[in-house]
């Protein structure tokens, strides 16, 4: 089977970025970020399991400004990956490939990620009291 003359992926340095291609690579980047962020979740649960002192330390560490910024970015990555993941599931079912639909769903994913992130953080700083 000849495999050396197939069309290549768009060359990054000469190919103009489009919403669809940028969202595609963002999905992967967000996924990698989220895998790293899972360490935080496990750390936080281990802290709760270890008792009040470890929990207090965890809350102080996670409540610091740099950690809050990191957590905010992580929330955005999470909701983006969630929304775009659902977009991918529709593609897997063979739906939504028309150019107009692909762009519309792309914008919808960005909007939903921003709205859900703000909602969670408003909730966290008001009801949650963080």
């Amino acid at each position: 089977m000849q495999t050396d003359n197939r069309p290549l992926s768009p060359h990054l340095q000469v190919y103009r970025p489009q919403l669809t291609s940028v969202l595609s690579i963002c999905h992967r980047a967000a996924g990698v970020l989220l895998a790293g962020g899972s360490l935080l979740l496990i750390y936080w649960l281990a802290a709760v399991a270890s008792g009040p002192e470890a929990y207090a330390t965890a809350q102080a560490v996670l409540g610091s400004l740099p950690a809050r910024l990191l957590l905010f970015g992580w929330t955005l990555a999470l909701f983006y990956h969630l929304g775009n993941g659902i977009r991918h599931l529709f593609w897997d079912a063979g739906k939504g490939f028309e150019l107009r639909t692909a762009y519309a769903s792309g914008y919808a994913v960005i909007a939903s990620a921003v709205v859900l992130t703000l909602l969670v953080w408003i909730l966290a700083t008001t009801v949650g009291g963080a």
Partner: peptide, 26 residues
Amino acid sequence: RVTAIALVPLVLWFTFSMAVYAGADF
């Protein structure tokens, strides 16, 4: 794909729960 489908409700439940308990005591 199967884990992705399972994660949709789990992640939504988790993030909003964590928001509510973000500043809670031990």
